[in-house]
C-alpha cells in the first residue's frame, strides 16, 4: 500500500494533489466550519445519512431475499409479480419514486376522514419514514435481481445432498441455500452498498436533513458556492472508503475454497 505510493511519479502526483488541496484551503472560505451551529448540523446530517444507509440496506435485503427466491424458483403467480415489481422500480428514477411516495401518496392521505386524529398521523406526516420506505424498496428491487442469480447459482448437488439427508425444506434453506447464496453476492453487495450510499442525498429533495441537505443550507445561508460542496464530496468519499474496507474485511473472514 505504502510502497505503491513511494514511486517517484506517484509522489509528484501526491505533491500536486496536496498543493491543490492547500490552495483550496488557503483561498477558499472555510470559516463556517468553525461555527458550533454548523458543526452540530453536520454531525447530525452525517448520522442521518449513515443510519438511513444501514437501515435501508437491512430492510431492503430482508425484502430482496423473498423477491429473489420468488423469481428464481417460485411458481408463476409469485415470480411474475416479483419481476414486475423489480422492473417497475428499476425502470423509473428514484427521485421520481420519492416524489410519488411523499408528495403523491402523501397528498392523498388528508382525504381519508379521521386520519389526522389517528396514532399513525405523526408517522404519515414525517418525510423520514417515506425516505426509508422509498430507499428500502429500491434496494429490494435491485438486490432482488442479484439474489435471483445467487440462488440459481448454488450448485444443485448441495441442495440434493441436503434433501437426501432428510432435511426439511426450511432448514435446508436456512443452513445450505441462503448462506451459500449470500456468500456469492458478498463482492457484489459491497458495490451495491456504495451505490445505495450515493442514492441517499436524494432524500434531501423530500425535506429529510441528511448531510447533503445540511450543505445546501450552509450554501444558502453563507452564499458560498463551492466549499460546502467540496466538503460534501470529501464526506461521501470517506464513507465510500469505509464501506469498501468493511466489505473487504468481511470477505476475508468468509472462508472460500479456490480451485
Amino acid at each position: 500500500m505504502l510502497q505503491a505510493l513511494l514511486i517517484p511519479r506517484r509522489m509528484v502526483m501526491l505533491a500536486i494533489a496536496l498543493g491543490l488541496l492547500s490552495l483550496c484551503f488557503i483561498y477558499g472560505r472555510w470559516d463556517w466550519l468553525g461555527e458550533a451551529r454548523y458543526q452540530n448540523m453536520m454531525l447530525k446530517g452525517i448520522w442521518n445519512t449513515v443510519s438511513l444507509l444501514v437501515l435501508t440496506m437491512a430492510l431492503g435485503m430482508a425484502l430482496a431475499i423473498p423477491l429473489g427466491l420468488a423469481q428464481a424458483v417460485g411458481p408463476w403467480y409469485l415470480a411474475r409479480p416479483a419481476q414486475a415489481f423489480c422492473g417497475l422500480i428499476r425502470g423509473t428514477p428514484l427521485l421520481l419514486q420519492l416524489f410519488l411516495l411523499y408528495y403523491g401518496i402523501g397528498s392523498l392521505f388528508p382525504g381519508i376522514p379521521g386520519i389526522r386524529e389517528s396514532i399513525f398521523w405523526p408517522i404519515l406526516r414525517d418525510a423520514w419514514y417515506f425516505a426509508v420506505l422509498g430507499l428500502s424498496l429500491s434496494v429490494a428491487a435491485y438486490e432482488g435481481e442479484v439474489m435471483r442469480g445467487a440462488f440459481k447459482g448454488v450448485p444443485h448437488g448441495q441442495l440434493e445432498a441436503a434433501t437426501a439427508m432428510g432435511m426439511p425444506p426450511f432448514t435446508m434453506f436456512r443452513r445450505i441455500w441462503l448462506p451459500q447464496a449470500l456468500q456469492r453476492v458478498l463482492p457484489t453487495l459491497g458495490g451495491e452498498t456504495v451505490l445505495q450510499m450515493k442514492a441517499t442525498p436524494l432524500v434531501a429533495m423530500i425535506t429529510v436533513t441528511d448531510i447533503y441537505a445540511v450543505s445546501s443550507r450552509v450554501r444558502a445561508e453563507t452564499l458560498i458556492v463551492y466549499e460546502p460542496l467540496l466538503m460534501l464530496a470529501l464526506v461521501y468519499m470517506a464513507i465510500t472508503g469505509i464501506i469498501v474496507l468493511m466489505f473487504r474485511w468481511f470477505e476475508n473472514r468468509v472462508p472460500t475454497r479456490t480451485a
Binding site: 450515493k198 436524494l202 460534501l232 461521501y236 465510500t240
Partner: peptide, 17 residues
C-alpha cells in the same frame, strides 16, 4: 473519484464549475 461521489453532488459541482 467519480464513482465514489453521489451523482447529485457531482452534478452540482460540475454544473457550477
Amino acid at each position: 473519484v467519480v464513482r465514489a461521489v453521489p451523482e447529485l453532488v457531482l452534478i452540482l459541482i460540475l454544473y457550477f464549475a
